[in-house]
Structures are given as C-alpha cells and as structure tokens.
Amino acid sequence: MGEDEWQNPFCWKGLLRDEYFTKALKCRCKELSTGLLSSNSVAQVADSLANILEESAERNFLRWSVLGEYVWPNYHVPQTCNSEISWLKHWLVERKVLN
C-alpha cells in the first residue's frame, strides 16, 4: 500500500487486517479473474477502447509531443500508442491483477 497515507483510503489497513474480509476479497478476485476480469476479457476491452480513441489519440499526440519522452511520474516511456496499450496489458497480467 505504500508509505503515502494520502494515496490509499484510510480504512484499507484495517480491512486488510480482518481475516474474514481478506478471505472474501481473495475469493471474489479469483471468481472475477475467470470471467469479467480475465486477461482475455480485459485485453478485448482495452483494444476496443483503443480503437474508439484512435483519432483522439492522434490529435492528442500532435498537440502534446510526449511519445518517446519521459513524463513524470510515468515509469514506461512508450514510443507509440500501441506500445503503451500493450505495456498496460502486460503490466496488469504481471502483477497478478489479471490471470
């Protein structure tokens, strides 16, 4: 959860100490990861949104020349819109947010 108390809801620490809550949370996450939040499902949503936003993204990067440039606090520096979308999907899967 990090050191910065302002970035996380104040109640999370207490909730995550509660055994009943953490078991229920794990069960719900596991349930969702086989359907609505599966890697394939989230990838399809990301790709469909990328298609919808394609023209807007082009205009955005014409106006704001940030592709290939570091912008604080971003860790990843994409060279293209597609590389940003691919990196986001990979990031979610690697962190076991999605399975």
Rank of each mutant, 00 (worst) to 15 (best):
M1Y: 15
M1F: 13
G2S: 01
E3Q: 05
D4Q: 02
D4T: 02
D4I: 08
E5T: 09
Q7V: 14
Q7W: 07
Q7S: 11
Q7T: 13
P9D: 08
C11Y: 14
C11E: 14
W12E: 05
W12Q: 11
W12P: 00
W12I: 10
K13F: 11
K13W: 13
G14M: 11
G14L: 15
L15M: 15
L15R: 15
L16D: 01
R17I: 08
D18V: 06
E19I: 10
E19V: 08
Y20Q: 15
Y20I: 13
T22H: 05
K23E: 15
A24K: 15
K26R: 12
K26C: 10
K26Y: 14
C27Q: 13
R28K: 14
R28T: 13
K30G: 11
K30P: 02
G35S: 11
G35Q: 08
S39I: 04
N40I: 13
N40K: 15
N40E: 11
S41Y: 03
Q44F: 01
V45P: 05
V45K: 06
A46H: 03
D47P: 01
S48G: 09
A50P: 07
I52E: 03
L53Y: 01
L53M: 09
E54R: 03
E55P: 02
S56V: 13
A57I: 03
A57F: 00
E58A: 11
E58I: 04
R59M: 12
R59Q: 14
N60Q: 09
N60M: 12
N60C: 14
N60K: 12
F61N: 04
F61R: 03
L62M: 14
L62E: 12
W64K: 14
W64I: 08
V66F: 10
V66E: 10
V66H: 05
L67I: 06
E69I: 13
V71T: 01
V71F: 07
N74I: 04
H76D: 10
V77I: 15
T80D: 02
C81Y: 01
N82Q: 14
S83I: 03
E84W: 04
E84H: 00
I85A: 00
I85L: 05
I85Y: 03
S86R: 02
W87T: 00
K89F: 00
K89Y: 02
H90P: 01
H90M: 06
E94Q: 04
V97K: 02
L98H: 00
L98Y: 02
N99E: 15
